[in-house]
Design a protein around this nucleic acid. Structure first.
Lengths: 342, 342
DNA sequence: CTGAAAGCGCTAACAA
DNA sequence: TTGTTAGCGCTTTCAG
């Protein structure tokens, strides 16, 4: 009835190590887990045996025994406007690099709002944005699994979140344009299903209001973050009877597209049109006119999320939920100039 | 000596389900694993209990018991030229989506050549490119873990690989330019530490040779795939005494940069310079002149890799290694035209 | 068609 | 400081 142990191809376990080292499996376990209480001499014997047998502990057995898991699931909405972006890549890179360093297993889930995944076995979850999948967050929370949401400030849920102050960032961009004398300032917005885009729009409006500039809905263009729609918007904007002298664009990728369109139409940047983007995407540095933009601390946000989660995962007691708002900072380069005297 | 079972917060296990359903745990296990031999009546009782208790089997216990794992590790070199690209994102998306569908757990490893990861517990590995980390591949192979390498044709190792025929792709691009009458054709290459870039360079050279056009090393520019270096190369190229009439660029992102530089210098595309890129990056569609390019079946490559790996992982016997070469196809759009009569 | 029971490889009381 | 041993939750013989 016993499964045959096929002599040679058997996977080596802690028992083999113990036997070779001439100690008990407990001692081996202690060495592996760096639990101090092992005599140096034995420690070395065990370490030798481990090396000799090329032993690697079974993570499954470990997790089963401890009930703990060092698996972090990163959930990214399968939403093209977001996924195909500088933002997504920076996020994955930031989170991936830190997980690697912290020895956390990073599980990637590209999801739509319907998909369900087995939560048994994951130690913590990071949600990148929430687009229609708030329910997934609630599920995770209900299971008592540590969880942090990034790039989204969640006020109606008792959940940790780390977001960027898009409102203030947008406001500072528009204020800067105003300080240069611009009054007719357009906005090309991202997809307002994302919190980031809608907040940037809000910041834009707020800046105008505070400066007593009347809002003209006719020069606010809503897009899906794509370059295609940016191009369309830019064309409308530039061919209008009463063109704007400046434009605040919700992403650098789109801003660059606007810049390109302007040039194609024979307009000079910044002489004829001042442009501010958002992201601090390195692409903005190329080209003859470096893009003025708002820098988001994406990598910082990514790393912070892993740190917070890691803390949560190793904490004994449930922690107070943290809500962090990271500042976005205006980076002045060359794509804006004071408005020409009328 | 027994760990206390804290009554309420205990995680529910197969035992609870069995108890509630009034059957043995074996039966529950059979139902979960869809092993036919269960009376319909019992099946329903079990399913009810599962639903009622919101039972989710512990993947760790399952894997420990079966010795099988459905974890796929995706290893991506932490190499900026590659990582920040359309390519990387397409790959992650393709692999991520299919894993999600196949219920495979996708583990992401951003690695440098030195990093080691615990292989115990992963059922299969996908390597995206090999940049200095061939040793990692060999390690995986040595452990007998199913493994496939993508975007790299590996001939000196008994390993499955799926790559794109960059040589032929590049050749067809250059042949096309030649067919339009171009004779002085430049090349802006990617980072030749990557196989893709060096093969594209090779295809370029081959096409010239076959057409008895002498190679001019002076108009071959090697870059790190960045837009910055593309810009520099383009400037050199366009300001040269004897400029080329056409250029084949190793990526669309760089090709777009070249196009931008050309315009800034007052050159018209395609009238003054014909350009072919590589990737079929949607960005190439925007702008006034759609980019002619070579389409790589990236998503297909990504999906194929998961399929092959999945097969390998569920196969009883070791399989013959597969080496797949996917064709790349020229996509003619607007950025090239026949050379002007001299 | 069903159930009892032996593992899978490891951790953590507890005793020594 | 070390070893014994009872689980962790599941699968899988094997005997009913």
């Amino acid at each position: 009835m016993v499964r045959l142990k096929k002599g040679p191809s058997k996977t080596i376990s802690i028992i083999d190590v113990a036997r070779l080292a001439g100690v008990s499996i407990t001692t081996v376990s202690r060495v592996i887990n760096k639990l101090s209480t092992v005599k140096e001499k034995n420690r070395i014997k065990v370490l030798d045996a481990v090396k000799q047998l090329k032993f690697q502990p079974s993570v499954f057995a470990q997790r089963l025994a401890t009930g703990k898991s060092n698996v972090v699931a990163l959930v990214i909405p399968r939403y093209e406007g977001i996924f195909y972006s500088f933002y997504a890549l920076e996020l994955i890179r930031g989170i991936g690099t830190l997980c690697e360093a912290l020895k956390l297993d990073l599980l990637l889930h590209l999801t739509d709002s319907r998909s369900k995944f087995n939560l048994r076995g994951v130690g913590g979850v990071i949600f990148a944005d929430i687009i229609g999948n708030q329910q997934q967050v609630e599920e995770v929370l209900a299971c008592g699994i540590p969880c942090v949401v990034i790039n989204q400030y969640v006020s109606d849920l008792e959940v940790n979140c780390i977001a960027i102050d898009n409102v203030a960032g947008a406001e500072s961009a528009v204020n800067y344009l105003i300080s240069l004398g611009h009054r007719r300032i357009a906005h090309i917005s991202g997809d307002v299903v994302t919190q980031a885009a809608s907040q940037r729009l809000q910041g834009y409006k707020q800046a105008l209001q505070k400066n007593k500039i009347t809002l003209d809905e006719g020069i606010i263009f809503k897009t899906d973050y794509s370059r295609g729609q940016a191009r369309l918007s830019a064309e409308k904007l530039l061919k209008a009877d009463k063109p704007a002298s400046a434009v605040f664009v919700a992403s650098d990728a789109m801003a660059l597209e606007v810049m390109a369109v302007a040039r194609e139409l024979g307009k000079k940047v910044p002489q004829d049109l001042s442009i501010v983007g958002f992201d601090d995407n390195p692409s903005g540095l190329y080209g003859p006119v470096a893009l003025t933009t708002v820098r988001q601390p994406l990598v910082q946000m990514a790393e912070e999320s892993v740190k917070v989660l890691n803390l949560l995962m190793s904490a004994k007691e449930p922690q107070k939920t943290k809500k962090i708002l990271l500042p976005a900072e205006l980076v002045i380069r060359e794509s804006c100039q004071p408005i020409k005297a009328a």
